[in-house]
Design a protein around this nucleic acid. Structure first.
Lengths: 175, 175
DNA sequence: TATAAATTACCTATCGGTAGGTAGGTTGTT
DNA sequence: AACAACCTACCTACCGATAGGTAATTTATA
């Protein structure tokens, strides 16, 4: 892993635990074994680092999801796949969704970071709308915003109360 | 309004836009017209201020809600009342829920602040469970976590995408 | 005359960012 | 092949600004 990749990885961990202001060039540099000034070689400003981080996070997320129609065709419920990706972020990583946290503090973010966070949600809503559509949902647009809202909210509350069973209960089908 | 109240009000505005690290004693002091050192007279440390802020926010929130059974008795749907309180936070204040934002960055918060944020959600879940119960809901505990998750998530996404119609669509009854 | 509330004047630590330099490798030209 | 020019990936040293916090003192109020 290159130093640049290591810096992004270290930044992701910190941001997902405490937001944009929860990492500094010095901390990142220490973690990967270079000097803080050298971080500027890879990322001219902190905003550049933040924007690239959100951009790559979004790309990885979408790649991990795959195509909703392809999932449907292979017998999977794409909404379950989507939910599972959130679950593993919470349970395995024990961290918030990067863009969920950044989105909440959107107003205080540098412009270029905020735009990348917006892209995350626009792409997610498009994916979920296609997924609900493939499921025969009569109002896929509404279902899409409800799905992502529920998951982001449940994730945040489970983190706050330090108990993943809240996430499980929130995402369980009503009996 | 006392200086102390003014400090809390100024802090609330800043935290609801950018989180715990989005306010400093200097900024707060400037806004209310005192010196930063004087803020320490009212709040020994930043954590004390943050904890008191979250505590009062929770109290105000619960007071504004009233009692679920009393609402029900007066012909109102308590869940609609609850939703409306979130809506006005988003539409009127144009800001995130204080504890929603703090909850997301829970891991990086001072202990005493984190405890107050936990209290917010525990109290909210208790209120919502009683409300769904009063509505005759067969699984009020599950409905409670789903309601607060959906609202916090929808609020965050509407803020991020700077479009309140996402909140409206997320909270609209499915047709 | 107490006490509350604020002041001045600091402190140490850290922040993002910049200036200037360097070792080692690559590319381009003759 | 030789050499100049350039690039990559760092370094040391430092900048002004800001962070949270403290001690001693003054001012205002009950």
């Amino acid at each position: 892993m290159s130093k640049k990749e290591a810096l992004l990885k270290a930044a992701e961990n910190k941001v997902r635990l405490g937001g944009y202001s929860n990492f500094s060039f010095r901390e990142l540099a220490n973690e990967v074994g270079i000097k803080s000034a050298s971080v500027h070689y890879h990322f001219p400003t902190k905003a550049d680092l933040g924007a690239e981080l959100a951009h790559q996070y979004t790309n990885s997320f979408l790649t991990a999801l795959g195509e909703p129609n392809a999932l449907k065709a292979s017998g999977k419920n794409p909404i379950n796949v989507y939910t599972q990706l959130f679950r593993s972020a919470l349970v395995t990583d024990r961290k918030m969704c990067l863009c969920g946290l950044l989105g909440a503090e959107s107003d205080s973010l540098p412009e270029k970071v905020r735009l990348e966070v917006k892209r995350f949600f626009n792409e997610n809503l498009a994916w979920l709308t296609a997924a609900h559509s493939a499921n025969g949902d009569l109002n896929p647009t509404q279902s899409a915003i409800q799905t992502v809202s529920l998951l982001e909210g449940a994730m945040m509350i489970s983190k706050t109360l330090d108990d993943n069973s809240y996430f499980e209960l929130a995402t369980k089908l009503t009996e």
